[in-house]
Design a protein around this nucleic acid. Structure first.
Lengths: 214, 214
DNA sequence: TTTAAAAAAGGACATTTGTCTCGGTTGATA
DNA sequence: TATCAACCGAGACAAATGTCCTTTTTTAAA
């Protein structure tokens, strides 16, 4: 659920180091800041150097669906550059985020000049298709409880914690349903370790943080 | 829902025409034949020349989820070649299918030697991500009735018809729910045109066909 | 520390979806 | 044509989920 791509990140950092004059900058975003807005035009690609973002689609009925959480080395805006289209999703910082900003002209140049870059990009896009498809299938065909369990375990494994609102949006359900399933899962036991208590407690604090920063 | 990529197809056909010696063959699959099996290893890429296939994931709980219906020019097996992994999905012919079979060595060669090919491939992968994400969001956040309407309209637009089982698997629901929603939709009217009656009637025949061919 | 305001959690009910089952329909065969 | 079998559709009930509203908890201020 938290996607990363260290290969991509090191490529960019090496490229910056080796090309002083190059037109890549670093930007900082505060937690909560939405740095890409669905439907708008962009002319840059962002590569996350640090922090966690969420990439989500806002549907016309007012609901949000989180496509993915993005961590180190993940790219945003490359679909828009390749397809020359308006932004498909919103992207917002969940924690403090630092990102490389790459003009799309340079992005296209890299594709045409560096086969190493192209290979990395093909890998990245492939991984996304695989993950998106696998998840769509999983969430449609398994019970919520099962999906929730998986989500909690992932957070434990990756030592992160995500607000309840975001977890619900990721699962495509209401917060009410989320709470209900959470209770079921915890009642059945298995999650009364200090680690999980921490994750759940942190989930609440995340909300607070988001509010403070906006 | 029925994806096609005419650019890809013409590239391959032109490439074959211009390179007599090239190691690309044509294969035919009868309706119903599953030419790629989830979990197996493959060493070819398939490009559909004619006919319609379905690409689906079989989950461990016995349920299937249809990722996409693939028409002319769509590629299969390229993720597996790029990521060097076992097959993510099953792919089965729905109608009679003709496909170009391309060894993955040639596929990799094309990526490294032809920037035109690479561009087409990047476009294809991007389109897939966009479609998969958009659909996942839509199906999670809208009512079934809404999704069903969209699905029926698409079939009318593209002059195709798909079996009820497959439509249900595409929507990630049981056939029972599918029938229920279908009744709701038709009761509310708007679908009593001859065209839609045809589509629904054909849906039943599709099932019959599938059975005959296996 | 107490109190008021805001937010999160949970109860109650309605709606949706799945499972199991039965009855009617269709098609094949004698 | 009569009969059987397979299949499809839908009823009945159970389980899951959403919406709305009340209760509880948390936060902020006096």
């Amino acid at each position: 659920m938290l996607r990363t791509n260290l290969t991509f990140l090191s490529f960019i950092e090496r490229f910056c180091a080796e090309n002083d004059e190059v037109n890549i900058t670093l930007k900082n975003f505060k937690a909560g800041y939405r740095f890409i807005e669905q439907g708008e035009k962009i002319s840059n690609i962002y590569v996350i150097k640090d922090g966690i973002s969420k990439c989500f689609i806002s549907e016309e009925n007012g609901k949000d669906f989180i496509i993915e959480f993005l961590g180190k080395g993940e790219v945003v805006g490359e679909l828009e550059a390749i397809k020359k289209m308006d932004c498909l999703c919103n992207v917002a910082a969940i924690s403090e985020v630092t990102a490389y900003v790459i003009p799309d002209s340079l992005f296209h140049l890299l594709i045409s000049k560096s086969s190493e870059f192209t290979t990395i990009l093909l890998q990245e896009l492939s991984t996304r298709i695989i993950q998106t498809s696998t998840r769509a299938s999983f969430q449609q065909l398994y019970t919520l409880e099962y999906a929730l369990l998986k989500l909690l375990k992932l957070q434990a494994d990756e030592h992160i914690s995500i607000s309840k609102e975001d977890m619900a949006a990721y699962l495509g359900i209401s917060v009410r349903s989320f709470n209900r399933s959470l209770k079921q899962v915890t009642d059945k036991g298995g999650f009364d370790t200090p680690e999980f208590k921490n994750i759940l407690q942190l989930s609440n604090m995340k909300k607070l943080l988001e509010r403070l920063k906006t």
